[in-house]
């Protein structure tokens, strides 16, 4: 597949919620976006702009009330193992150890159906190693720090080897330092050092603009009430990106530009 293949397509997507006795609440309105194979797309916007709704529609956890959503030109009808989701609260199973959580989809879902037990265990061990959790395999989620839980969620996501990684503010609950470290790791695991054709497609939601600029190939900027796609910003910053990237004047300029796009709205959201 070439790098220009369209992986996910949202065409005229809308989502309304019925509220008894009131006009329907419009979460997302006329949202159209093509997401390319292997690209790292970040959606930014103020809270309440419908970012999570867009992600849930892609995941198949929510159904759009208007428009079409496709993956590889097939309509999305429900959740499936081809699209892995990393949830904002991580959604780790508290009764499973790190190993159990990472291997959950391989063991109980279709992702590992074709694998032998040995191959499955091998992949679990490899993934745990990849996210730097070696030595914590037998710990339970409640014994882990926030950053470690986030790593478990990431490992669980990639262990299933989905075509598309959907991430809903996965770093929002972390402190600033842990967050910076995990941004680096996320790009490494995604494969920013490898050729673009070997990368997986990522849709990443955040409200932090610097995070969006650091991670993304393209940034979709949303505005709220109703949730609409305001513009798509191409991110020319070279890969691989490192700590040095954050210090570049271009980095700061891009952050400023996106901030200016949503500033008024973000301000209004704080007083609404």
């Amino acid at each position: 597949m070439s790098a220009d293949t369209i992986k996910l397509r949202l065409a005229g997507v809308g989502k309304r919620f019925a509220v008894a006795g009131k006009p329907d609440a419009v979460a997302v309105d006329d949202f159209s976006l093509d997401i390319r194979q292997g690209e790292f797309l970040v959606v930014v916007g103020p809270s309440g702009c419908g970012k999570t709704t867009v992600l849930n529609v892609l995941a198949g956890l929510d159904t759009a009330t208007a428009g079409t959503v496709t993956i590889d030109e097939r309509p999305i009808a429900g959740p499936g193992p081809d699209r892995g989701v990393m949830f904002q609260d991580y959604a780790l199973f508290p009764w499973q150890t790190v190993r159990g959580n990472v291997g959950f989809g391989l063991k109980y879902g279709p992702a590992g159906a074709s694998l032998s037990t040995a191959a499955r265990n091998e992949r679990i061990a490899h993934t745990i190693d990849l996210v730097g959790l070696k030595g914590s395999e037998d710990k339970y989620p409640h014994q882990l720090s926030g950053g470690m839980r986030q790593r478990v969620a990431l490992a669980r996501l990639i262990a299933n080897e989905p075509d598309v990684l959907l991430m809903d503010e996965p770093l929002a609950a972390l402190d600033a330092q842990t967050r910076t470290i995990l941004q680096d790791e996320l790009l490494r695991v995604w494969g920013q050092d490898r050729p673009a054709s070997e990368r997986r497609t990522v849709v990443f939601i955040t409200h932090a603009i610097d995070e969006a600029v650091f991670l993304a190939d393209r940034i979709a900027v949303m505005t709220a009430h109703p949730g609409r796609l305001k513009t798509i910003v191409d991110n020319p910053l070279p890969r691989p990106r490192t700590d040095a990237t954050r210090a570049l004047p271009e980095f700061q300029a891009l952050v400023q530009r996106i901030w200016s796009l949503i500033r008024d709205e973000a301000y209004r959201a704080t007083v609404a």
């Binding site: 956890l61 429900g78 949830f87 959604a91 199973f93 989809g105 109980y108 879902g109």
Partner: peptide
Amino acid sequence: PTLLRAAATMGLRKFT
């Protein structure tokens, strides 16, 4: 509900 959604995105069947 988020755990049920996580299971759904991993393609688990109902009984599983």
